[in-house]
Design a protein around this nucleic acid. Structure first.
Length: 844
RNA sequence: GCCGGCGUGGCGAAAUGGCAGACGCAAGGGACUUAAAAUCCCUUUCCGCGAAAGUGGAGUGCGGGUUCGAGUCCCGCCGCCGGCACCA
């Protein structure tokens, strides 16, 4: 195949048009105030999730989403929109740093090389990006603003009264550092002693290092955190106004994990300490027969009795050595030890034992629970194992065995008895609040965002330390660029690699720079904003560009359509929404949400139906497909495979199918002469379309238009195939057919459309034609064929005039020979006539 | 375990509650050709009957239901894929 003559000369014209588009700036989108900006045009911002430029290059999975957005971008341009369709690089990150460690090359060099390759590959597919807007997260001119945004977070707090981000100056408390959106805390990192390095979460698989499979420990280290938890409620509420798949919204909601319940205070008998627990079932308080603290709970030591101190200490050590995974997944059997202390159940004054157990997590709620074994599976399991008392306080609606965790009627609960669960909860919370023993509250699973990494290849923090205190550097000092290190190797301690750059760290005689760097998520949190105004050196985004492209209007989201994989359904999209909301509150942005509409493309599997991976050897690259079949075939096949959102396997035979279709389109216009050269077909003529051809043509305009709008690209393509099949044997062949088809095809197969438009001598370019409009009156037929069913079974067909009345249709249907046969000896009970669809005769 | 999504020919798939399988792949047959490739035409859900044009029945993972009519809506299962997973 590769040595054989191509069915149409795409290797010649595809690169030529790509160069032409680049050279003429065909897809440049002017900003308000810029040359060529037309304020009358509506804007359309269509965004891809930008890639990490890996050394392996693009694979066909990337190309799927990018093709879909490119079709929409081109379609909207043809419909008169000012289209923002940018591309850039999420280029900080581990692989580049690891490659640097291995080869000694600076990550900046390898990153630049990978970007070159990615850009070349994307341009070879003919994507209509506005390359003047290209950004890379690793560019100091870009991450200057990433650091600037960090300073905005550092210098603000979330005011619970206004439920908004405010400058830290509005905070009147004693310790502003305790409320900043960016703050410092001791948090555990993944430390791998064998590798002598900290690991990112993505480098830890099943509690072991991805490289080498060594055990990973959790070790506390001073870390930067972002207070995303303050936005939990806003992040849930904001989802309502967005056009996202319901599944993704649900994923985010579950991740945030809102639950309503109560905080209840239990007093420790011996020390008098109050320990708060969080419960979603305050109605079961009378059934709380013991208490459990997380092993890391700060009061564990204090309350433990001397007799239990050794056992408690031993248990704590055992738990600490377990990784998070060992602690959760592998711990099938419940474990724990008594502290020897007792607490008082505030509801009934009962004396209950206090245990520690690792099934209670320090990171959720208060790190302490009241155990109600009769109505909680975990507490039940624990109580059975350690022979702790179990008391039923909820009557199930129908008798059940063992532990009942559902809703029912309160029993054995004094003033709650007889109340349904919901009402009992309310009553108990009111009682607790009245007695000052607790209060209703809302809890979230969401944790604050651990924002520092012990890495070289990331954004340095614009922070210096002096006398053990942090402070921001001046905005004028941005960007803070990493020093050029020759040695990127881990330090062998949890200290970040930047700690080796002694000169760089020294900020003044008494102050030193922060040596952690930001995580890869940082740069991708706001890149969609920079695309709107990439060259602005005064602001991260200018207000005019923000108002125009992010579209200050009734909808909350700015980007009109955002397409990418589900793997970012939670983290990236949540982080970006968080930053956006903070910046919005501070008055830097005009919309409360970044992405109005989100679509997830499905994964493309290898030809073997397995996930594509190097180790399986089933990776298909766009380069190889383009070499054999051309960029247009690649694009068309990516879209023809099936619905965008669906997972589907690659098939080279399928590529050949669309390649043959494109060749047929080519031959609608071209034929080979004696010398084997392509010349405009002699069958072409300025001849009117037959009425059947007109109908097909206008049906095609209608369907392709509707299908693109619905992102149903596969069916749009089949309709264009139908069109082509209709005309391929027509002689003479109306030129008008190509005037209609080529603009429709242009978003899908832009090179071929451009080339044929040019060769046929039509004015302008296919890609800049106004989008064709269909004429509905040409679609109606004078006579229509209707299927006739008898008792729901197809029996015959009748042909009736378009304008036939129901009565006429009914009469014609009953007169049809097969229908008479089928209804012989039966009485017609009812006849359903659906105009334009069918007739159903119900007979008994 | 909980929460999502998906089950339609040999394969990728299509079908506002209204003719199931458009379009494409593959397979088989034919035309063109010295031959092949390419191209073009025809056939192809399954099971009967018929020499044939035809013709009868079944059929969208399984079992029920709603409806004149269900791939589509409802209830209950089964299978695959994805996410979360001791979250009190």
């Amino acid at each position: 195949m590769s040595t054989q003559r191509k069915q149409f000369p795409f290797p010649e014209f595809e690169p030529r048009w790509q160069q032409e588009w680049l050279a003429t700036g065909a897809f440049r989108a002017p900003n308000p105030g810029g040359t060529g900006f037309d304020p009358a045009k509506p804007k359309y911002y269509i965004l891809d999730m930008f890639p990490y430029p890996s050394g392996d290059g693009l694979h066909v999975g990337h190309v799927e989403g990018y093709t879909a957005t490119d079709i929409l971008a081109r379609f909207h341009r043809m419909r008169g929109f000012n289209v923002l369709h940018p591309m850039g690089w999420d280029a900080f990150g581990l692989p580049a740093e690891q490659f640097a460690i291995k080869t000694g090359q600076h990550p900046r060099a390898t990153t630049a090389r990978n970007i070159e390759n990615f850009r070349r590959q994307l341009q070879a597919v003919g994507f209509s990006y506005d390359w003047d807007r290209e950004v890379s997260t690793t560019d100091p001119a870009y991450f200057r603003w990433t650091q600037w945004i960090f300073l905005q977070l550092y210098n603000s707090w979330f005011n619970p009264a206004s439920k908004k981000t405010e400058p830290i100056s509005t905070y009147t408390g004693a310790d502003p550092d305790s409320v900043r959106l960016a703050y410092v805390a001791e948090m555990p990192v993944n430390w791998c002693p064998q590798l002598g390095t900290v690991l990112a979460n993505e480098e830890v698989v099943d509690g072991k290092s991805e490289v080498g499979g060594f055990p990973v420990e959790r070790r506390p280290l001073r870390q930067w955190m972002l207070r995303i938890t303050a936005f939990a409620e806003r992040l849930i509420e904001g989802l309502d106004g967005l056009d996202w798949p319901e599944g993704i919204k649900l994923l985010q909601k579950n991740w945030i994990g809102r639950s309503e319940g109560a905080l209840v205070e239990f007093a420790i008998e011996s020390t008098g300490d109050g320990i708060e627990v969080f419960t979603t079932r305050p109605d079961t308080l009378f059934g709380a027969t013991y208490m459990i603290l997380a092993p890391e709970h700060p009061l564990v030591e204090k309350i433990s009795t001397p007799a239990q101190a050794a056992a408690v200490a031993e248990y704590k050590t055992a738990v600490a050595s377990k990784s998070d995974l060992a602690r959760t997944d592998l711990a099938k059997e419940k474990t724990g030890v008594p502290t020897g202390a007792f607490a008082t159940n505030p509801a009934n004054g009962e004396r209950i034992p206090v245990w520690i157990a690792d099934y209670v997590l320090m990171g959720y709620g208060t790190g302490a629970i009241m155990a109600v074994p009769a109505h909680d599976e975990r507490d039940f399991e624990f109580a059975k194992k350690f022979a702790l008392p179990i008391r039923e306080v909820v009557q199930p609606p129908s008798p059940t065995e063992a532990c009942f965790a559902g809703e029912g009627t309160a029993i054995n609960s004094s003033f709650l008895d007889g109340l349904p669960t919901a009402e009992a909860k309310r009553r108990m919370v009111a009682w607790l609040e009245e007695k000052n023993l607790g209060r209703g509250t809302v809890n979230y699973k969401l944790r604050d965002w651990l924002f520092s990494r012990q890495r070289y290849w990331g954004e340095p923090f614009p922070i210096v330390w002096e006398s053990g205190r942090h402070r921001p550097v001046c905005e004028s000092e941005l960007p803070v660029v990493q020093p050029d290190l020759d040695d990127f190797k881990p330090t062998g301690t949890p200290e970040p690699p930047l700690s080796k750059a002694r000169d760089w760290i020294r900020y003044s005689a008494t102050a030193g720079r922060e040596t952690n760097t930001m995580p890869q998520w940082a740069g991708s949190c706001w890149y969609y904003l920079r695309f709107c105004d990439p060259q602005n050196s005064n602001r991260f985004i200018g207000p005019e560009a923000d108002h125009y492209w992010m579209g200050k209007n009734s909808r909350p989201g700015g980007v009109d359509l955002y397409v990418g994989g589900t793997e970012h359904a939670v983290l990236h999209l949540l982080y970006a929404r968080f930053w956006h909301k903070a910046l919005f509150d501070l008055g830097h942005l005009s919309t409360p949400e970044p992405f109005q509409r989100l679509v997830n493309q499905g994964m493309i599997l290898g030809p073997d139906g397995q996930k594509m991976s190097k180790s399986r050897g089933n990776v298909v690259t766009p380069d190889s497909v383009i070499a054999e079949y051309g960029a247009d075939s690649l694009r068309l096949y990516e879209m023809f495979m099936g619905p965008l959102e669906q997972m589907k396997p690659w098939s080279m035979k399928g590529v050949e199918g669309v390649y043959r279709f494109l060749a047929r389109v080519w031959r609608l216009a071209m034929e080979e002469n004696q010398e084997g050269e392509w010349v405009v077909s002699k069958d072409l003529a300025e001849t009117p379309l037959s009425s059947a051809q007109l109908r097909t043509a206008h049906a095609t305009i209608k369907k392709v238009t509707a299908d693109i709008e619905a992102l149903a690209f596969n069916t749009a393509i089949s309709q264009m195939m139908v069109f082509t099949n209709e005309f391929v044997n027509a002689a003479p062949r109306p030129l008008e057919a190509l005037r209609i088809l080529l603009p429709l095809l242009s978003p899908f197969a832009p090179h071929l459309a451009e080339e044929l438009w040019h060769r046929l001598g039509f004015p302008g370019r296919a890609s800049t034609q106004p989008w064709p409009k269909h004429d509905e009156s040409l679609l109606v037929e004078n006579e229509i064929e209707l299927p006739v069913q008898v008792n729901g079974k197809l029996r015959d067909r009748i042909v009736v005039p378009k304008a036939a009345t129901k009565e006429e249709i009914e009469a014609a249907a009953q007169a049809a020979p097969k229908v008479r046969e089928a209804t012989a000896g039966l009485t017609v009970a009812k006849t359903i006539v659906v105009p334009g669809k069918l007739v159903n005769i119900v007979a008994k």
